[in-house]
Amino acid sequence: MRITVDMNLCESHGQCVFAAPDIFSFDDEDYLLYDAAPADALRDRAEQAAAVCPVRAITVSAGAS
């Protein structure tokens, strides 16, 4: 599974961090950090994170982890 985040759109709402803390987190300046190739077992959480992003910055796609 591949994760991409359009950082031009990201407004640090934090909804993805709430939905999938194993993939998304913030640094001390509220800048989003994420695992671009998480395990496929996290697929549901990744898709939930994409669904709750208010600015639709997250894309989840198939691909080698």
């Binding site: 934090g14 987190s25 913030f26 640094d27 001390d28 509220d30």
Partner: peptide, 11 residues
């Protein structure tokens, strides 16, 4: 405010 990183633990 400008501390979103702190919210996850509260949630």
């Amino acid at each position: 405010i400008n501390r979103t990183a702190r919210l996850a633990a509260y949630r």
